[in-house]
């Protein structure tokens, strides 16, 4: 504080009022200039009213925002929240799912189902490994052929060997010598031969 202020020759500013209001006044120190200067005292009183007015306005505003009913509701809500603190939180049980058809009733049914599934899998994998279509086709061919006896098979194999080893002329000339073709002799007699025709023309 300057000497001029102390002597009352200079007037206090708003900032000095604010400083006094915030600081010195709290400590109960009387301001020497305010005690001496009537004009500043009047101004300071106006300043104090202004500051107090702000406080009143702010308090009123908050009190209007929180009327009695609202405070009562707030208190009830606080009590409710305190009550819930002491109760352990309830855990809702998850609803039971419907039991699966396979599970439960009997173990035998389960084993049958598992075995069927395993069989199916094994069959499918075997089918991938073994070429079954070839086997099926071969089986069908055998079934379509006539059944041979053991003697026929021997004769057939002999003929096959014979025919494959002789020429065509030998085959024709030798045809009459075969015993099972004797029945054709009569028919052969009725049929004119080439050699006979050649002889007569000579």
């Amino acid at each position: 504080m300057s000497l001029l202020e102390r002597l009352g020759r200079g007037h206090l500013t708003d900032a000095q009022f604010a400083k006094y209001w915030a600081d010195d006044k709290v400590e109960g120190v009387p301001h020497p200039h305010l005690a001496a200067c009537e004009a500043c005292r009047v101004r300071y009183e106006a300043f104090e009213r202004w500051v107090d007015g702000i406080g009143d306005e702010l308090r009123d505003e908050a009190d209007e925002a929180f009327a009695g009913e609202r405070l009562a509701a707030q208190q009830a809500q606080i009590v409710r929240r305190l009550e819930t603190l002491e109760r352990p939180a309830r855990v809702l049980r998850f609803p039971k799912a419907a039991r699966a058809v396979i599970s439960g009733h009997s173990h035998a049914r389960r084993w049958v189902t598992v075995a069927a599934a395993a069989g199916l899998l094994a069959g499918l994998s075997l089918a991938q490994i073994v070429p079954l279509h070839h086997a099926v086709a071969g089986h069908r061919t055998i079934q379509g052929e006539p059944v041979l006896t053991a003697s026929d098979a021997r004769e057939l194999s002999h003929e096959i060997v014979f025919t494959t080893s002789q020429s065509d002329d030998e085959l024709l000339s030798d045809a009459f010598t075969r015993s099972h073709q004797g029945a054709l002799g009569a028919l052969d007699d009725m049929t004119p031969h080439v050699r006979d025709i050649v002889d007569t023309s000579k």
Binding site: D63, A65, F66, Q75, R81
Partner: peptide, 24 residues
């Protein structure tokens, strides 16, 4: 202390509902 607390919270937050929650 409810009223005083509500005032303080209101002056900080400037919103009635939020001040209410803060006090609670």
């Amino acid at each position: 202390h409810q009223r005083r607390a509500s005032r303080i919270a209101y002056h900080y937050l400037r919103d009635g509902a939020e001040a209410d929650e803060a006090v609670q």
